[in-house]
């Protein structure tokens, strides 16, 4: 969903081994072959940051902080 708004092309794969991620769990994001980000929040933030013009992380550091505040709250 985040990828959709940011215009990123992400394929969801569930059949692979999860041992690649730091916690040994899904999900993880494989950026290029062998380069991985695990933990859901880190993944969506990375995808959101890939396209700043989509504005998913706010316009300025304060907006960003407020967004993070509500992410932590929910």
């Amino acid at each position: 969903m985040v990828a959709d708004i940011a215009g990123a092309d992400v394929e969801v794969v569930v059949s692979k081994e999860a041992s690649k991620s730091i916690s040994g769990r899904f999900p993880y994001l494989e950026i290029t072959d062998g380069v991985i980000i695990s933990e859901a929040e880190a993944i969506v933030k990375h995808i959101a940051r890939m396209n700043n013009s989509a504005g998913l992380l706010g316009k300025n550091p304060f907006d960003h902080a407020k967004i993070n505040e509500w992410i932590a709250w929910s």
Partner: peptide, 26 residues
């Protein structure tokens, strides 16, 4: 808490839809 915060706001970070809306919305 969130009802109070959202008073006068269109989205969580003001005018534009953000990751915060997605997390709280879900």
């Amino acid at each position: 808490v969130i009802d109070h915060y959202l008073k006068g706001k269109h989205w969580i970070s003001g005018e534009s839809f953000s990751l915060g809306d997605i997390f709280v919305g879900c």
